[in-house]
Each structure stands twice: as structure tokens, then as C-alpha cells.
């Protein structure tokens, strides 16, 4: 049962990673990256590493996502 969940989680990680790098629109790519970070936090929980899970959810998904979206907005607004 838990192995089935692990396989599903691993497949979702790879799928969101592939989509994040291949999707056409940049804003979707960034949102997919945030989803990827949250899936990583789940993987850390499954690997019995709650410390990393906490940090990944707050920093890897939250702060990195905010930084990327802010940069995307700035690049888009400045475009002539």
C-alpha cells in the first residue's frame, strides 16, 4: 500500500519535472515548479525527513516560487 503511494509520488515528481521544463507558457512553468516543490516536501515526509520537508515547503516551494513569479512579472512588464 505504501509502496504504491511511493511509486505514484515518484511518477508525479518526474511528470511535474518534465512538464515544468517543457510547458509553453512561462507562468505555467513556474506554477508547475511550485507544485513540484510541494511534491518534493511529500517525498521528504515519506523518507522520514520531516526537517527537510518543512524547509522544502517553506523555502523550496514558497520563497523560490515567490522570487520566480516576481522576476517573471518584472521581465514581462519591462518588455517593450
Amino acid at each position: 500500500m505504501s509502496l504504491a503511494f511511493d511509486v505514484l509520488l515518484a511518477l508525479s515528481l518526474i511528470w511535474s519535472g518534465v512538464r515544468c521544463l517543457s510547458v509553453e507558457r512561462l507562468d505555467r512553468a513556474i506554477v508547475l515548479f511550485i507544485a513540484f516543490g510541494l511534491l518534493m516536501a511529500l517525498a521528504w515526509a515519506r523518507l522520514a525527513a520531516p526537517d527537510i520537508g518543512l524547509a522544502e515547503a517553506a523555502i523550496g516551494a514558497g520563497l523560490t516560487g515567490a522570487l520566480l513569479l516576481d522576476a517573471w512579472g518584472a521581465l514581462k512588464r519591462r518588455r517593450p
Binding site: G17, C20, L21, L26, A29, I30, F33, F36, G37, M40, A43, I52, G60, T64, L68, A71, W72, L75
Partner: peptide
């Protein structure tokens, strides 16, 4: 470059895993 930064982060996550 923004997409390349995303790819760099995916690479890092793989190394951590």
C-alpha cells in the same frame, strides 16, 4: 534564463533525493 534556473533547481532536487 528563467527556464534554465528552473532546470537548475530540478537538478538540485534530484541530487538531494
Amino acid at each position: 534564463l528563467l527556464r534554465r534556473i528552473l532546470a537548475f533547481n530540478v537538478m538540485g532536487s534530484g541530487a538531494f533525493l
